[in-house]
Structure formats: structure tokens, C-alpha cells
């Protein structure tokens, strides 16, 4: 059984992160910026990449017990990536490999730029190819290459210890549009305000709602009701915008709860139009103003305010 398709919507989660590295990862990244690969002593072993703790016991390691390893090492296992993703370090086919660097007892994961899958084998020797511009990041090693000799060696050393790391994750999603959402969007385009009336408890929900949560009843087209495009402002907040990536507001703005006439539906956090923030109040009679295919906001009708002390409690 396949549900009727209402199309899809594209959306990208794109977050700029910045990570603090702490003492050990920070030392490792600082090392990379200076073309040095560090491991950490863990008992009789050396771990690379280094951790602050013994991963088998959780015990804190001596953060000063860093030792240089490599730069060459041995491939312990490998796979071939024929079509790199946007997140991969190379934009041509490459091997992702577990590499045990000389002097280390654990394996570092990194790319091997071998040119061809035929050049890859377990046990092969590889050495780092350094980037010219290094920032203290795992990709300061552009990739490992077959052989014993590191490539791209220079005299550049970091002036300051590396303590932070940027991380930019970007994932494009294709999300199916729920049937009710699609039907509601059509109604909004036609400047109709629709609701969905639960056949069990008779509560009215916004047009895109999927279920009445009171009796876990699916809401479908047959429960659709046309709602008046007038209502009463029951509650509100005035928001002073804070700045963050993507913020579009600069002046204080209101978000209001609107009890739609002839129903028990409250539409939450709505913008208001032609109602200055200092005049926003409980009880204002409002009518819907249409934007381009959506509700632009609610505008005072000029009718007298509704005087009902319980109105402010109609948040939902």
C-alpha cells in the first residue's frame, strides 16, 4: 500500500560549528599544522590518533606523553571510494584506509591518493602528502600517498597552538510533503482558511494537522471545514530580535494567538498588520490578510475589543 504522494520539499541543514579541541586533540592538530604527527603513550602502547583517555578503561592519560610517529606507515585495511562525496577530502577516486603509522600501535583513518584501486593493497607503505595551507585540521594531510617519503614538506610552523576547529556540515534533505500539508497549501493559495474537525471529539485543528492527539484519530480530507477569516487576539508576545545567522528581523515584532471565529481553533504565534507593537492587546478583533500563497498576518477589524477575562488563557 502506497500513500498518495503530495510531492516533496527540498531543505538543507547547513550549520557552521566550531569545536574546541582540548589539550590532546589540540596538540595533535597543532602538530599537523607543523607537519608533525603525534601519538600519545598509553601504557606500553602508542595511540595515534591520540585521545585524552585510555579508550579501553576510561583512565586519564598523561596529556604530556605525546610522541612523534610516522610519518610513514602501513595500510592495515582499505576501501576504494570511486565517487567521492562533498564531505570527502579528495574530489577524485581515492582509498579510505586504516593506517598504522610507524611507532604507533593503533590505526589512523585517512585517505590514500593511490590513483587506482589496483595500486592498493593491505600491508602497503604510505606517507603523508601535506597541504601547503595548513590550519591544524585532520585534512592538513591532504592524503597519504604510496611510498616512504612524505610530500609537500616546508618550513612553515604554526605561530600559535591550535585550539579550535571549524566544522561545516551540510546535508540536503528531500522530505515528502504530508497529504494534509499539501491540501492546506492549496487552500491557502486559494485564500481559504481550512480546519480539520475531529470526528470523535469535534475539536478543530489547523488544516495541516495529521492527527487529533486526544483520541489519536487520523484527520483527512473528509474532516475539512471552511473557517471564517476573522478572529480575536487572545494572547501575544513582543519579541526583541537577537542576531543569529539567518535572522531577518531588526525591530521588535509581535507574535499573537488568534482564536478563529465559530471554532475552538487557536492559531499560534501569528504576525499582526497595522497594529503597532505598543497597541497589541488581548481582545483585539482581527481579520486575516493574505500574502502570496500564505497568511501574511492579521489586521484589526475596528470592531470593539472582546472583553472576556478567560480569553488570555486560550493559548491553544
Amino acid at each position: 500500500m502506497t500513500a498518495p504522494s503530495a510531492g516533496t520539499v527540498e531543505m538543507t541543514i547547513r550549520f557552521p560549528y566550531k569545536r574546541s579541541l582540548g589539550p590532546v586533540i589540540g596538540a595533535f592538530m597543532t602538530g599537523l599544522a607543523g607537519q608533525q604527527i603525534l601519538g600519545i603513550r598509553n601504557g606500553s602502547e602508542v595511540m595515534c590518533p591520540p585521545l585524552e583517555w585510555d579508550p579501553k578503561t576510561g583512565k586519564e592519560l598523561d596529556h604530556g606523553a605525546l610522541v612523534e610517529v610516522g610519518p610513514a606507515g602501513t595500510v592495515v585495511s582499505w576501501t576504494w571510494v570511486p565517487k567521492p562525496s562533498a564531505q570527502h577530502p579528495l574530489d577524485k577516486p581515492f582509498a579510505l584506509a586504516l593506517i598504522r603509522l610507524d611507532g604507533a600501535d593503533t590505526a589512523l583513518t585517512h585517505a590514500v591518493d593511490a590513483g587506482s584501486i589496483d595500486a592498493m593493497s593491505t600491508g602497503m607503505r604510505v606517507a603523508p602528502r601535506w597541504k601547503a595551507e595548513r590550519q591544524g585540521h585532520i585534512t592538513d594531510i591532504e592524503a597519504f600517498v604510496p611510498g616512504e617519503d612524505p610530500q609537500g614538506l616546508d618550513d612553515s610552523r604554526p605561530e600559535e597552538p591550535v585550539t579550535m576547529m571549524p566544522y561545516n556540515a551540510e546535508i540536503p534533505y528531500t522530505l515528502p510533503i504530508a497529504v494534509n500539508t499539501a491540501r492546506n497549501a492549496v487552500a491557502l493559495k486559494e485564500k481559504r482558511l481550512i480546519g480539520l474537525r475531529c470526528p470523535v471529539c469535534s475539536r478543530t485543528y489547523a488544516g495541516e494537522r495529521g492527527f487529533c492527539p486526544i483520541d489519536t484519530t487520523a484527520l483527512t480530507a473528509e474532516h475539512e471545514v471552511q473557517l471564517p477569516q476573522t478572529g480575536t487576539l487572545t494572547n501575544y508576545t513582543i519579541i526583541t530580535p537577537v542576531q543569529y545567522p539567518g535572522q531577518t528581523e531588526t525591530e521588535p515584532f509581535a507574535r499573537c494567538m488568534i482564536l478563529v471565529d465559530d471554532s475552538d481553533l487557536v492559531i499560534g504565534y501569528q504576525p499582526v498588520i497595522d497594529l503597532p507593537v505598543e497597541q497589541v492587546r488581548v481582545g483585539v478583533r482581527v481579520k486575516l490578510v493574505w500574502g502570496d500563497g500564505d497568511i501574511e498576518g492579521w489586521q484589526p477589524t475596528g470592531e470593539p475589543d472582546v472583553d472576556d477575562p478567560d480569553l488570555v488563557n486560550r493559548i491553544y
Binding site: 586533540i25 576501501t79 564531505q87 583513518t109 585532520i138
Partner: peptide
């Protein structure tokens, strides 16, 4: 998030290594 995610190392690649 420091050593593996920035390389785009995904579950399938690790499975291949195993």
C-alpha cells in the same frame, strides 16, 4: 567529530574496511 567526521568517513566505508 575531530578525526573521522571531517574526512566524510561514513558507515558504509567503515563496513568495507571491516
Amino acid at each position: 567529530p575531530f578525526y573521522l567526521a571531517p574526512l566524510g568517513a561514513d558507515a558504509m566505508s567503515f563496513s568495507a574496511l571491516q
